[in-house]
């Protein structure tokens, strides 16, 4: 089933037709001059980009950036090394502290502390020995 043309749509179509029939042309232009200008602008832009890197400020900036990167890399490497030796340092520290502990000096006693758990048995064993001899 076809739809009836919307009057608003019709008006819009008329407007678009009017616009299309009356497209205005811009003022004439000398095209070879236009292209010459474009070529000159392009060359200037490319040249500016090339010389920018040769200027002292960009050079100094590049050098600073490179320096910062080197320093950064060194810091990262150094911190990596420190974290690698961190465990060793802790072990040395523990040994130093351990040396100062008296308990550890009597290490054989400490090793035999588990005998305390069997103390009653051991005591009884002693009594049994006395009774047998007595």
């Amino acid at each position: 089933m076809g739809t009836l043309p919307d009057p608003e749509l019709e008006q819009f179509r008329d407007l678009l037709d009017d616009l299309a029939h009356a497209v205005e042309r811009p003022p004439d232009i000398h095209w070879s001059r236009y292209r010459a200008e474009l070529r000159a602008k392009l060359e200037a832009r490319l040249e500016r980009r090339r010389t920018w890197w040769r200027r002292p400020v960009p050079l100094a900036l590049s050098a600073s950036l490179a320096g910062a990167l080197v320093v950064g890399a060194l810091v990262v490497v150094q911190s990596g090394r420190q974290s690698g030796t961190g465990a060793d340092l802790a072990a040395v520290e523990e040994a130093a502290i351990g040396d100062r502990l008296e308990l550890l000096e009597q290490y054989r006693v400490v090793e035999q502390l588990d005998l305390l758990e069997e103390f009653d048995v051991i005591r009884d064993l002693d009594r049994l020995t006395v009774e047998r001899t007595g």
Binding site: E24, R25, P26, P27, I29, W31, Y34, E37, L38, L42
Partner: peptide, 28 residues
């Protein structure tokens, strides 16, 4: 594209000099 670029730019900015500069900038 030079003709189309210039005409389109002119239609929007409505100034021949600006349209020329802008269309050239587009090519750059």
């Amino acid at each position: 594209y030079q003709g189309r670029a210039y005409r389109l730019a002119w239609s929007i900015v409505r100034n021949a000099e600006d349209a020329r500069d802008l269309s050239q900038e587009a090519f750059i």
